[in-house]
Amino acid sequence: MLELQNIHSYYGKAHILDDLSFNIAKGEVVALLGRNGAGKSTTMKSVMQLVPPRSGKVQFMGRELTGLPAFRVAKMGIGYVPEDRRIFTDLTVLENLEVGRQPARDGAPTWTVEQLFGIFPNLAERRMNRGKQMSGGEQQMLTIARTLMGNPALLLLDEPSEGIAPVIVEQMAHTIMRLKAEGLTVMISEQNLHFARAVTDRAIIIESGQKKFDGTFQQLEAHPEIRDAYLAV
């Protein structure tokens, strides 16, 4: 479904992604693992073309994304949830969801506001509240719900467990399993190995913008030296 071929991305002169390639198949839930600064967020932004790769190819369902503006990428069915949440703090919960709304698309689950309130009951209670009046966990739910309003076929979740309370992290894990059950393809960037193992099928480990490992968690466990080299703090 998603295919990255030899991606090189830069921030100014800093070389962030170095010849990165991987594939994600339809229906998979994949974890993108690595330390702070390894290039996880940049990978997601490179897919969205928010940080357009300087060379290499990004393909989504056989169509080339490289060079498109971000809104076209989103319209093709990729939903992006940024790590810093970036909800519209002056808008109400309902208005935030409205901004994300896109028409239904074939081959992807369709979401309504009421369905999303079913998954995130806290949001339903606060539907008329402004974004800035909400807690970090609630904001994290809102940003996921907002992206789901676009009925994406592929969801990019950038560090969904970061900076939220453990009880919410658990809720988040259930949510992601629910999304998987709906047939959504998901890529999650994570530093929390336990969380990643609980919700995903496969791990891709990157370090300094290069792919170091790509396989199942069983395979990863068979090679503790990889985990120690690229994930241990």
Partner: peptide
């Protein structure tokens, strides 16, 4: 609504398909 959202964070509005 889109206008007010763009006032705050235009890049994010774009990433949501607008």
């Amino acid at each position: 609504t889109l206008v007010r959202a763009a006032t705050q964070d235009r890049e994010m509005v774009g990433a949501l398909g607008v």
